[in-house]
Every structure is written in structure tokens, then in C-alpha cells.
Computed example of a mutant assay.
Amino acid sequence: MSVSAAQSAAFRKEAPAAGHVWTILEDDSYIAPHKPDGSRAMPFWSRQSRAQSVVDQVPAYSGLEIVAIPFDAWLRDLVPWLAEQGVLIGVNWSGERATGYDVSPQDILGWFAAPEGTPSQSTEGS
């Protein structure tokens, strides 16, 4: 399994369990860097420590602010908005160049859809 595949699998397991995802802000705005093909991807991490590692290792992200977003709000509000904007979702980017899988918002929604007949993973009210 590649590092990117392992990071993606970790994201799918850890994010719902943590109840949050983490991203980084630059000047109070979310970042969504352009990729070589012209598309954009907004990074999210399943643990604060993963985001901190990128901020510490990648010069372009040095000193940027790490923020937590409640998992349910992210999935309900931000992921569909990113789909409308045509922005991909970077999951658990890592390493000196902050690389990893960039996934469509539709795929993210599919990852976390509750199977029919089972309750969703919502933690609202708890």
C-alpha cells in the first residue's frame, strides 16, 4: 500500500471517530492550492498532529493557522459547497511537499454515507 493510500485509509477511519477534521488558514481564509493541471484541492487532516506536521515541514505552510471543523458540519456544509465550487479535497497530505490523494467531494460523501437501515455517524447533541 502506498503512503497516500495509507493516509487515505487513515482519514476514513480517524475523521468520524475524532469528530473533527483539521485544515489550515492563511489570512483568515481557507487555502486551496492550484495543482499542476489547474484544478484546486483544499487539504483536510483527520488529526491535528497530521496538520501540524505539514505546517512544520512545508515552507509554504509555515506559520499558518490550524483550525478544527466539526466532522458533521464539514460533511453537511463544506463538502457540498466544495463540490459546487469544483474544488477537490486533499486527505491527510503528508511529507515535505504536502502530497497525497485529492478526492472529489462526491467520493467523500460516498465514503461516509450511512448504509441503508443504519443510523448515520452523527454526533450532534452529544
Rank of each mutant, 00 (worst) to 15 (best):
S4C: 03
W111V: 05
S49K: 14
E84H: 13
P70A: 06
G86H: 04
W81P: 00
Q57L: 11
G19N: 09
S94Y: 12
D107A: 15
A98Y: 01
L82P: 06
A68M: 06
A6M: 08
D56P: 01
A15E: 02
S29N: 13
Y101I: 02
S126C: 04
F112L: 00
W74N: 06
G19F: 10
S29K: 15
W81E: 13
S4E: 14
Q52I: 03
S53M: 11
A10K: 12
S29M: 07
E116K: 11
L25C: 10
E96A: 14
A83H: 11
R97M: 14
R40D: 01
S4R: 13
F11R: 04
M1D: 10
T118N: 03
D37N: 13
S94C: 14
G63Q: 00
M42D: 01
F112Y: 03
D56K: 15
S46N: 02
E124P: 04
W22N: 13
E84I: 03
F11E: 00
L88E: 08
A83R: 14
Q57I: 01
I24D: 05
S2G: 11
L64K: 15
L25H: 10
A113S: 12
Q85T: 02
S120I: 00
H34I: 10
P36W: 08
P43T: 13
R40G: 08
P119L: 09
S53L: 03
F11I: 02
I69A: 04
P59C: 05
A41F: 11
A51T: 13
A32Q: 09
I69P: 04
Q121Y: 00
E124K: 09
T123E: 07
S29C: 11
D37P: 08
P115Q: 04
V58Y: 11
I31P: 08
G38D: 07
D27G: 09
E116H: 01
V21R: 00
G100R: 03
G100N: 03
N92H: 01
D56A: 14
Y61K: 07
V79L: 06
T123D: 07
I69G: 09
R47T: 11
G125M: 02
A15H: 01
P59M: 11
S49I: 07
S94G: 12
P105Y: 01
S120P: 12
M42Y: 10
G90Y: 09
